[in-house]
Design a binder for these strands. Structure first.
Lengths: 648, 648
DNA sequence: TGGTTTTACACCTATGTGAGAATG
DNA sequence: CTCATTCTCACATAGGTGTAAAAC
């Protein structure tokens, strides 16, 4: 990974222009072979840039590879039917590069852990990407979300992570809209796009709009690009989803692997106080400094250089701003970052550096990227391993990308028991004017756009999705866990069904703004929040109700089925579009009240936890079937919601 | 200043292409008139881009204008003799724009104050510039320094700053090399260049490499661009110096003007805790919120938006990374930032935003800039006022720029008692290999380049420079205070003279690296540092000694003469090239020891202060002449140094 | 008991406060 | 010795981070 050769040839994913790296390693046979065989009869009326998986030689470390292989339900090419004119053109084949790849890989190689706390915790290797290939003047909305990787719960035993049963139910995932959205392509491309404000929490009652994760579960951050000049248009826009396998992590409430702890301490500027140099951090440590001595030292030096690095906007407190890990090729440290070629300092990294928005970030261009290419649809095994069973297309120097268009009609064909997931949105909307006034003297934003939600169709093959999925898209599904190949029949918003409950739900709290299709402002977790006094939103008992996102637990009396993170593009999601911005809740709540609102205490923290605990002991299905009472308890508040959506 | 018109036409300084703004105000007559008359017979074999002052209409506020007028000794065109082939070509006419102009102006209009503390303090409106017009692939070194504006000491009385006597002696100023240096033009231009790490201190024993300033004195930050692919080549490279008058400030140990305090609180993310919203900051306040109500509110809202802004690299702790002030045209707040035209949110600021590296920084493009154009040579009055006496060329929408080339032979002619300062470097160098190893596991940097220091010639007219000058270039001069028109005779390194003591001194501590022409590493303030145990550096008593920079106080037995900040390009400086990077001192010290070193406790803090105090009561010259004993005390350690440099 | 989770803490960086100290 | 100007320093605010012990 620190191979000079790697740094020489920057590989970023680009749909059409894949660079073949000279020193590229051969792609595992099963992967290469799998590619063609898995898409024999899939129909791609309009083969999008991502429909035909582009395989790149793998470059990731062993750990990364393993983890990668374990992940299935990869990106799905929606193969939505788009007329040529509707396509976005050649300028819309954005290339996305993960920043701090080296750092991410270091973590990934030993099993990244992300602490989740009640008050919310940032991700440490910060999730930051560099985007290229956007239309300079077109506006885009960039988002990210974090979805469950599988339906397993993990435990850290004897220095290794092992599966420890079925996953706990996932809370609906929020789509985090980058605060700068919408912005012009030129702006987005001018510098790496960071998602620092996205916080992770394990507090299911979180009112900040943080991403709620389950401890000891594995997650995968995803990045989305949507060409839209208005957040209100998100639901009908094409989502281009990028997944960087090395950003996978296991959520924990306390670090399990000491090596991870050490890596965090060594790299996170905010944890300087725990570094060996003197103060704090008593015992432990010492031994785990040998993970890969050379690498460690190198990267350490590199990271520390961030201290003296000034290039970032406003590095702030000692540099917490500059993710040290991405500062890998500062001109002054090119010797360590770019070991290849030139002995002349001045000539190093020239090609790579040129055009980079930040010298420090150049490194990512030099580091390899794993390309995960998802095909249309994938069959999901119960758990990890047996990669062949899955339509996982993986390659190095790339990322997986999915494109879906929820605003256009889409059709799909089912072949070989595999079918691309499609969502058809036949709008019949809602015109509303939302005046977003952030609290705290924030900037004002007035949006006036039609918000349309209409009949939608979802066609899919259930097995395609692991039991634990995004949850933020279709957080709950009615029906059995093994539907026929024909999948669920199309659901229309006019015929409310739990199945569609989350499809149209919309919630934006980016920039402290929450909006709902109902014309009111909603406090962040309105659809499952149990916070006293929190207005949870309007629930017109008519068709509009189907637009409301509901927690999957609402339907726990039936087997839960969730989409795999890799299979459900965020575009369908729409569910929770949030952005951390505490402090505005009052205003939002008030605004919400002004609309047609009702409080829905879906369930409380306590009962939820109880259910969760229960689940840990028994397999998921067992829980669903055996302890319905418990879940019923959780879903009590859902009763109301269930009315318009009879358990089918 | 918030005039929409201003924001429409972005004016940045460009040597050849000066844009004439429609609504430009006429330039003060004396300025226009002064220009030609002051350079009647000056010879400019190769008229550099800056030799002929370009005047731009003024746009600054009253306060800014006043301050600007008060400043003299403006940029000097070195008129160095450069053969056509040696010139850098048309690609080397960089345009530089100060970021956060609005914020800077807000501060400037009420008298910017910068707190200096023992432990070092950042500047608050962060000094950040956007550079354009560089050669994409050529390497550049960007630097900044802060120099005294005049030789006055100030006091804040009855809500206004007034002169309170002669200035105290200045400590040698360090040239802060941007940590990313050297980097390609493309890299520098890809985003604003920030100098966050530069810290201000009043601790003359500072070992961090911070910039040492005198409290209650006025300073002017300067920005320099040097086309060089190696830091070692700095001394022989052409420096393009840019001065933004609105960044002028008075150093204070405690804020004097409450309005400034409030502005800081309102804008500095790190001071959030003092904002009115609840906690901290008890009394005071309330009234000073009316400076310009509308503006205040606007900017306030704008700044606060930084909180939700995520676009910066790693906003880190609460956003300290994004200087709120510069976040003036975030896409979401364009309504307030861009008052003109479109009502459609999506269409606002399009032209301005396009191509900007950061949406927030776009604002600077819209704000006016003051252009200060210095001509070759200037006559300096004793103090402020009487602007006519000075060759001050000033215009709005520009900055002053100076170009000097210390690596080429230079000749000058003396006319009208005014002569451009010139420095001729006839190299006869020193080949050395420096291995820079930062402490703290920092990155490694190995530089192998010839470091040449040879016979040099300095021709100048003493009166050209105010008594208080940069100090970092020629911090002390032997000879009388009023030399004849012929100026000092050329000094050669082979004939050591105090006059040249600082010319060749070289010290780099950027990235925690200090290098000296002697092949050893030097701890930062080695030439005047009094810290116990700190190695102050080698002082070979041979010709090499003349390369060592020495504190001006070493020569205080003679009248002190310093260059005006505007007249001495940093290129000659070379004296102190530093960059904050504490913690490396040990290593550096050790390395220093490995060379031919000796400890020189030049003087201690106490005696220094004593001398300073003394100076406050009596005019500068008086001090020099009358209290030699006091100064002698300070210079005691200098005795050793004086040996090779007999008091002439 | 043991695996998790929670929580009060201490540390880091940055910033302004305000009382007390140093200086004149 | 007093008064006023300056300066210093312990604090408190803010936010992020891991720790260790307690809680669950």
């Amino acid at each position: 990974m620190r191979d000079p050769v790697d740094t020489a040839a920057a590989m970023t994913y680009h749909p059409f222009h894949h660079t073949n790296r000279p020193g590229a390693l051969p792609l595992p046979a099963f992967l290469s072979a799998a590619q063609p065989s898995f898409f024999p009869a899939l129909t791609f009326p309009e083969v999008g840039p991502l429909s035909a998986p582009q395989l790149e030689p793998e470059q990731l470390g062993a750990a990364a590879s393993e983890a990668a292989l374990r992940r299935l339900g990869l990106p799905v090419h929606p193969s939505t039917v788009k007329s040529p004119k509707e396509r976005e053109g050649p300028d819309d084949e954005p290339k996305v590069t993960l920043e701090s790849k080296n750092l991410w890989n270091e973590f990934h190689n030993m099993g990244t852990e992300m602490v989740i706390t009640k008050s919310g915790r940032r991700m440490f290797p910060p999730f930051k990407v560099r985007v290229e290939g956007l239309d300079l003047t077109a506006k885009y909305i960039l988002l990210m979300d974090i979805v469950a990787v599988d339906d397993s719960r993990y435990k850290f035993h004897s220095s290794r992570w092992t599966v420890a049963g079925k996953a706990d139910p996932e809370m609906p995932k929020r789509m985090y809209i980058h605060p700068d959205s919408p912005s012009k392509g030129g702006q987005w491309m001018s510098k790496p796009v960071a998602f620092h404000k996205l916080k992770l929490t394990n507090n299911i009652s979180d009112k900040h709009g943080f991403t709620i994760l389950n401890s000891m579960h594995k997650y995968q951050p995803r990045f989305h690009i949507v060409r839209a000049n208005d957040i209100m248009k998100l639901p009908y826009s094409t989502f281009r989803t990028y997944v960087f396998p090395e950003t996978e992590f296991i959520a924990v409430t306390a670090y399990q692997n000491e090596k991870i702890t050490q890596l965090k301490i060594d790299n996170n500027p905010f944890a300087k106080g725990f570094r060996d140099t003197g103060n704090g951090r008593r015992e432990k440590r010492n031994k785990q400094l040998s993970v890969s001595l050379l690498n460690e030292n190198q990267s350490k030096a590199i990271r520390d250089s961030a201290d003296s690095d000034d290039s970032s906007e406003q590095p702030g407190p000692s540099d917490p701003f500059c993710s040290p890990g991405e500062i890998l090729s500062s001109p002054l440290m090119s010797t360590s970052a770019c070991q290849g070629g030139d002995s002349d300092l001045d000539l190093q990294c020239e090609d790579v550096m040129a055009g980079c928005s930040r010298p420090e970030q150049t490194s990512s261009l030099k580091s390899e990227v794993i390309l995960w290419k998802g095909s249309a649809g994938s069959k999901s095994a119960d758990n990890q391993d047996t990669p062949k069973d899955r339509k996982l297309f993986r390659a190095s120097d790339g990322i997986s990308s999915t494109e879906m268009d929820s605003s256009k009609k889409s059709l799909s064909e089912i072949r070989d028991g595999i079918m691309p997931m499609m969502l058809q949105t036949q709008s019949s909307g809602h015109l509303q004017t939302l005046d977003f006034s952030g609290a705290h003297s924030r900037q004002f934003l007035t949006v006036e756009a039609p918000l349309m939600f209409g009949p939608r169709r979802l066609t899919m093959k259930p097995e395609t999705f692991p039991n634990i999925g995004t949850g933020h898209l279709l957080s709950s599904l009615s029906g059995t866990n093994d539907l026929g190949a024909g999948g669920l029949s199309p659901q229309s918003i006019t015929s409310p069904s739990p199945f569609m409950s989350h499809l149209s739900q919309h919630m934006l709290t980016s920039q402290g703004i929450s909006l709902s299709p109902f014309g009111g402002m909603l406090s962040y977790p309105y659809h499952y929040m149990a916070a006293p006094g929190a207005i949870t939103s309007a629930l017109p008992s008519s068709s509009a109700t189907s637009l409301l996102s509901r927690n999957r637990y609402l339907h726990s009396t039936r087997p839960l089925m969730r989409f795999s993170p890799y299979q459900i593009p965020a575009s369908f999601t729409s569910s929770l579009l949030t952005s951390r911005s505490a402090g505005n809740s009052n205003l939002l709540t008030d605004l919400c009240k002004s609309g047609s609102t009702e409080s829905h205490l879906l369930y409380d923290n306590h009962s939820y936890k109880k259910a969760k605990a229960k689940q840990k002991t028994a397999p998921y299905k067992a829980t669903v079937k055996g302890s319905t009472d418990e879940l019923q308890n959780i879903n009590k508040p859902a009763g109301r919601l269930d009315k318009p959506f009879p358990p089918q």
